[in-house]
């Protein structure tokens, strides 16, 4: 089985700051990492490879430094890594990104036919979750989102059994191969990579493609030109205010609490629309 995982280099949003003047992410303020959901996606591909055999490839679109996350994927256990890197891709929104990645996947499929594509649920610097389904649509394969378990791979029938997370509970579905999964973090634990993988990753040279290396590309759909999305505004959410500490005897505390609740009682009445 050939599984290809789409990975993205993102700023670590746990530390990133927003530039208050321009309302954009100050990317210098945080180190670049492998999008955490994608790490789970690579791990799942590696787990399935161990189960049924085959090859795991990863593909990313980004600047030349993004080879760092390809190396990271090799540490987790990927066999090959492709980076599409070209000025023509710059400034892409989710529409243009999924177009470019689908072209890269078509090219990879020529080297070795693809049985499954896995993406993270979303990238932590955008949280849209649109690229995965966008790719599936363009490749005309079924998108299966919010996957929390790949229960079974039935190779001879070209089918997989999958558990999907729903708002309440989960569902178990069967999908035909090839298909595209987007995975949640609960799908697995990213393992501590064995030393031989680390050494292989340190040596590994990513395969880098420019637009010219891809086939049948409609350049108008790439990069900024192919991106209809406009970001209106970006802001840091307000810091939550600290709680109130009630002191005194149990009775006093209860009374104070009741007073406070009564003051805010409109919060507890059901809003009805007229």
């Amino acid at each position: 089985m050939h599984i290809v995982v789409c990975v993205k280099q993102v700023p670590d949003t746990k530390i990133i700051k927003i530039n208050p003047k321009t309302n954009t992410l100050d990317r210098r303020s945080a180190p670049a990492i492998l999008n955490p959901y994608d790490a789970h996606a690579v791990q799942e591909a590696v787990r399935l490879k161990k189960l049924v055999g085959g090859t795991v490839s990863v593909v990313s679109m980004g600047p030349p430094q993004a080879t760092a996350i390809i190396k990271k994927s090799v540490e987790i256990g990927a066999d090959e890594g492709y980076l599409i890197s070209d000025r023509a891709f710059a400034g892409a929104d989710t529409l243009a990104t999924s177009y470019a990645l689908s072209k890269a996947l078509e090219r990879i499929a020529k080297i070795k036919p693809i049985d499954m594509v896995i993406c993270g649920k979303h990238a932590i610097d955008g949280d849209t979750g649109q690229v995965g389904p966008g790719i599936a649509r363009r490749l005309d394969i079924p998108p299966v989102t919010n996957v929390i378990e790949v229960t079974e791979v039935i190779e001879k029938d070209k089918k997989v059994v999958i558990k999907r997370k729903l708002t309440s509970g989960y569902e178990i579905i069967q999908a035909q191969l090839p298909c595209l999964l987007t995975v949640e973090k609960e799908i697995n634990e990213v393992e501590y990579s064995p030393l031989p993988n680390m050494i292989r990753a340190a040596k590994y040279e990513s395969i880098i493609w420019t637009v010219a290396d891809l086939e049948n590309v409609d350049k108008v759909q790439l990069g900024l030109k192919g991106s209809p999305t406009i970001v209106g505004k970006m802001f840091s959410p307000p810091k939550p205010e600290g709680g109130i500490r009630l002191e005194g005897t149990a009775n006093e505390q209860v009374n104070k609490l009741m007073d406070l609740l009564m003051e805010k009682k409109e919060l507890f009445t059901l809003q009805t629309t007229k």
Binding site: Y192, S193, P194, L195, P196, M198, I199
Partner: peptide, 9 residues
């Protein structure tokens, strides 16, 4: 010996 699986080198 490193702290990684298969960690001897």
């Amino acid at each position: 010996r490193t702290d990684r699986p298969d960690g001897d080198i």
